[in-house]
Structure formats: C-alpha cells, structure tokens
Write a protein that binds this DNA or RNA. Structure first.
Lengths: 203, 203, 203, 203
DNA sequence: CATGAATGAGCTTTCATTCAT
DNA sequence: CATGAATGAAAGCTCATTCAT
C-alpha cells in the first residue's frame, strides 16, 4: 500500500483515508499523523501533495461537492415535471446530508476561523449545486434563467430549510418526541410546498 | 484585575470572555488558557468557578437560553393576533441569533460528542423556548394546546428554517450576491407564510 | 462533621481520613484537597494542624508505628518461650503488613526523595519496633540485652526477610505459581528457623 | 546535543537520563519533561522512541533484567560446587542491586498500579533470573529440575531475603548503627546458610 | 479557628509543521 | 518522491501552598 507505482496514486489514497477518518471520527480528530498512519506513509509525505491541512480540507470539500453534484444530477434523471424536480433535488440533498454527516459538517458547517478561505475557483464549482436548485425553481415559474437574483434567493431559502433540519438533527437538538423521518418529510414538503402555494396565489 | 472586589465578578468575567473567545475563534479553539489570559487570571482560577470545560460551556448555554427566552417573551408583549405572534417570535429569534452569534453556536450548533451531556434540568428550561413556538402555532390553528405532537413538529419545521438560514450565514456559506437582510425576510415569510397558506387550504 | 466541638477533633479527623485515602488509593493519589473534601473542611484548614504534606505524612507514619507496636506487643501476651516469641513477632508483623498495604508502603518503602527527613524524635519511637525483635533474639541466646550490636543486626536480618517477602507480594512480583500463604509460612520459618539452626550449631 | 549523528543515540540517552532521574527523585517524580530537559531534547522527542511513559519504563526494566541476567550468569563462571553457586548468585544479585539502585527500583519495587501491565514476552525473559536461583537450589539438593514447585518457592524465599535487605537500604530504613556491608554479609549467609542447615537436618 | 480566592508550576500527551537527507 | 528526526506550542487538568479576612 505504501509504495505506489503511479505517482499520483498516493494523493488519491490520502484523500480517501482523510475522508474515512473524517467520517469515522469527525473533524476534531482529523490529524495529519492519523491519516498518514492509515495510508501507510509518513506525515511528511502528505505535505508533498497538499500545502497544509487546510489545503487538504479544501480538496476534501471539493470532492464532497462533486459527489453531491453528481448525486443531485442523478436524482433528476428522467424527471420532467418542474415541481417534481424540485422535490427530487431536496430529497437527494437530504439523503446526502444524512448519510455523510461528518463530511457534510466540514462542507457546510465548519467555522471559517478554522480554515483558510475556500479558494475562489473551488467555490465556483461548489456553487453549481446551488445553481441546480435555482434553475429548478426558475423552471417552476416558467421563466428559465431570468430574474436570477430572485431565484437564487429562493434557492437559498429552500437550502436553509433543509440545511437547518439536517444540522439540528446532526447536533442532536431535535426533541426526542420528534419522529425524524416524519419530520424530514414535513421539512421537504414545507420547502417545496410553499413554492406551489406562492405560485397558486400568483396565478 | 486579578483580585476582584466582588467575589462573583470573576465568574461573570470568565463567562464573558468565554463568549468572546467563542465568537472570535469558534468552539474548537476555545481553551481554558486563552480564556484565562483574556480575563487576566490563571487557568487554575477558572476551575474555582466551573468544574471543567463542559461545565463552563453548559453555563454559557444556559445563560444564552435564558436571554433568548426573555427576548422571545418580550417580543410577544401586547401582540394578540395569533399569526402576528408567530411572526414576532420568528423575528425575535432571528435577531437574537444574528446579534449573539457567540452564544448561538454553543447553544444550537455544538456537536454533543464534544461536550458532556447537557444536564436534564437545564434542558427542561431550554425546551421552553421551543414551547413558545409550539403554543403560538396551536393558537393559530384555534385549538389551544391540543394535538401537541403536530404542533411540536411544526414548531421544529419553522425552527429548522430559521436556524438553517442563521447557521449558513454564520458559517459564511451564503453567496455573496445574496442580500442578507432581504434573505432573512424571505426566510421568515416562508416559515410563517406557509402556515397561513396551509391554513387557507384547510379552510 | 465539619464543625467539631472539641478543637483537636479536626486534627484527628484529618489523620483518619488521610489514612483512609492512603489505604484506599495509595500515596500517589493522596492529595490535600481530597483529604479536605473527605473530612469536610477546606484544604487550608489542614495547614492549621500540619505544617505541610510531609508533616502530615510523618504523623501518619508515626501513627502506623504506634499501631504496629501495639499489635506486636499484643502478640507476645502470655507467650514465654523465647523462640515462640520470635515466631509470634514475625507472624504479627507479617499480618500487619499484609492487612495495611498502602499504610505499610508509606511506613517502610516510600522513597526518601518524596518526603522530608523523618524527624529524630519520631524515629526514636519507631525504633522500638525493631527493638522488640532484637530483645526477643537476645532472649533466645540467653543473654538479655548484651552484645546489642549483634542482636540489632540479627533483628535487621529477620526484618529484611519478612519485609522482602511482603514487598515482593505488594508489588506483585511473586510468580503466579507461588501459593502466597505457603510462601509466607516458609518465609517466617526461614527467618526464625535459621536462628535455631545456628544455635544448634553453637551448642 | 539536540541533533545526534547516530540516530539511536538519543534513545539511549533518554534511557540513561530516565534512570538517573529515577535514582535522584524516585518514580513518583519521574516526568517526561524532566527527562527531556536533562537529555537536552524536547519532551515530544521522547515520544518518537517510546509510545508513552509506560513504554519507556518497560524498556528500562527490560534493560535492567538483561544486565542482571548477564551479571548472574557471569558470576557462575567456573564455579562447580552447588552451594558455592548459590552463594555466588546471591552475592552477584546483591551487588547488582546496590550498584544499580536506579534500575532496581523500577525492576522490583514499582507498584503495578502505576504502570501498564508488563508485557508477557518481556516477563518471560525476566523470569529467567529467578530460574537461575531455582536451578541452583535444585542442584544443591542433588535432584536436577525435579520438584520444581518447592525449588521455586525456596528461590523466592532467598530472593525475598536479599530483596528485603536491599530495599530497606534503598529506602534508608536501616538503622544508622548498622554497618551496611556487614549486614549484607549476614543476609547472604542467612539466605544460603539456612539451606545447608536444612540439608544437614535431612541427611 | 477557619475560610475562599488565587497562584504558579507541574503533569502527559497531541498537534501541524519543518528540515536535512 | 519520500523519509526520519525534531520542534515548539498548546491542550485540559491537578497539585501544594499562600494570603487576606
């Protein structure tokens, strides 16, 4: 495992293990040494591929964003109805968040003070996930891409709704009397349902 | 500053500084030594007032919950209309969250794995804040206190919406093109508006 | 428990608790704070009765020496035969050692570097325990008190034999295949038996 | 001294200093920091060579056991007479103990509660030292290796005798009027002499 | 006689990072 | 491309002790 033929294989291995560590033990226990031990190389070697811990984290986040993007795209496969598409996106995002807790936390929750600023070019790619939501919303309203600002804001509102539910769940702030699955259903309904409601009003 | 005239002044000062440290660097870098340095006492002294780090955090959370409760209660003063009351609660909660990021993070974001279990009796007091929302919702539906479970869930949905918005903002995940205040308005509208919408349907 | 009527009751209580702590958790965990907590007074109060931790330890050792002395004396009650008396002393010492492990360690094992020099006047009292052995040995040889040096040395030899057995047992260095009780019997036999053996030779 | 030419020099230096610290202040005050300071490296560096404090202690014990073993073996060189061999072993052990108090304490006095369990494979090597005694005793009785249990016990009795003398000396519990060398002679005589005495009886 | 407040030094251990090779 | 050695800072916490009251 230690000696790889392909030179960039090690980089991949490091990312893999870092992800595993992250998912298994959380950000707090994510240490260069542990990753190195798991990969089978020295801690120093990691610095050959990543400037520092933050750089590694950024790569990790980026990877997560790609995965999320693919999952979101996949969820839209063959779905035509605009409202349905919104629904699918929410569901898909929710699933990703619930299945990748620690990952999700680094991606969307980690306090900026603990990380260097996320680089612009990476951010641009990450933004595509939000755009999926915005586009879907625009489609619902029948005007593809126009009035971007409003769609972007609406996307943020929906995002906030789901993100809030996820993060309350992750940090175990939900009351014990709440049935989690039912709650999540209600959350998605509220996020998307409101849209229709608003639309009905408009029409 | 070391020797305070008032005996419990130091305790208050520690709590204050702990809050400051939290806002400045987040939970992960909250250290007893840093707090002590900021306060102007030794780390050991902190242990005179708090059993350990977790105890200090619990005190912080509790303090925040009390403040929030008072603020929420205050916001309802003289407001009769049930829907208006919901609106007020949301606004008030939002204001608190935005103005007290330092508190807010420990109160609602800090992962339990990083902290001893929050003591039951403190939790019971904290729960009152959620109850305010649930009660207001019940009032909207015209059936005071009945169907508690559904009201509790609805309260959670609203809470998730606002909490999500706040936490995205705090962790600086909101797109730069988003006008924060406008976004927050939209969030509250969505949280409460949906209620009405649903009610209209029902009627 | 905290407020005693008799002023010197507290001193006694401190010693009692210190002994308990010592027996229960060993020297390493013996802390002024713990003792104070157990007694129900503040750590500061201990300093009213004992100059410092070493002073307290000395008092503790002294107490132990007195107890041992009484136990040794008691064991001789009604026993006339000189050799029997030697035997009884050994047995009695052994019992004390086995039943008061942590106590015993402080009395006879604690590294001098961890304690101020044991005060002369206390030492003199402690010496009486050895004297009991030396006197008994002298009696065996039929010459009461004469040739003190040789008797003192012999007493030390016997003492070393038993102390060695006890201390190997306490620090769990005895092989698992050794039956402890049988071993201790053999040890006492060896300590005393040799005496007789030597005497037989002499006669 | 920080950067050593020979890579494993530091490891040796650490062990050396640890031993020195032990003799100077005893186990209780043995601290990684102190060792590091004495060696001239940082405390962190110690962790490059030893997993933790216990690991360091185990290494120290092991080293001591090996040395003792070699010394015991050496003392038997060319000695044929069984009783003489017993005598030599005792003398040799005694010399080791007196000349290596630093080792000796960790090896035979340190309470297990203060240390991780001594690893089995190391213990097996350490046991060889006791076996030397047991074998020598069996030889005296003319039955090589048989009746192991009894020989093992006798070995323990002798061991206890010498160990007791040594440990009283180390912890400075011997009376000032005792001539140490003479005392030690008497101790060895007692340990071995008794054997012969017993044997004479038997014959 | 007794306390409450405070200190400073100490502990073991982990961390991200660097540098010479 | 990769390593082994080393560092300095920091963490949470406990300790014996002092001092003013």
């Amino acid at each position: 495992m230690a000696r790889n033929t392909n030179p960039s294989e090690l980089r991949a291995a490091i990312l893999d293990e870092a992800r595993e560590c992250l998912i298994a033990e959380g950000y707090l226990s994510l240490s260069m040494r542990k990753i190195a031990r798991a990969v089978g190389c020295t801690a120093t070697s990691i610095y050959l591929y990543f400037q520092d811990k933050d750089d590694l984290l950024h790569a990790l986040i980026n990877e997560g964003m790609e995965r999320l993007h693919n999952q979101l795209l996949g969820s839209l496969d063959g779905v035509q109805d605009p409202v349905q598409r919104c629904h699918k996106l929410c569901r898909s995002y929710l699933e990703f968040a619930l299945e990748n807790r620690q990952y999700y936390e680094v991606m969307f929750l980690l306090h900026p003070a603990h990380m260097k600023r996320y680089p612009k070019e990476l951010y641009r790619r990450a933004r595509r996930n939000l755009d999926l939501f915005a586009d879907a919303l625009a489609a619902v309203k029948g005007r593809p891409g126009s009035e971007e600002k409003e769609d972007l804001r609406s996307a943020h509102v929906i995002w906030a709704q789901i993100h809030g539910a996820v993060s309350l769940h992750h940090s175990q702030r939900l009351d014990v009397n709440i049935d989690v699955l039912g709650f999540m259903d209600a959350v998605v309904d509220n996020a998307v349902g409101h849209l229709l409601c608003k639309q009905d009003e408009a029409s």
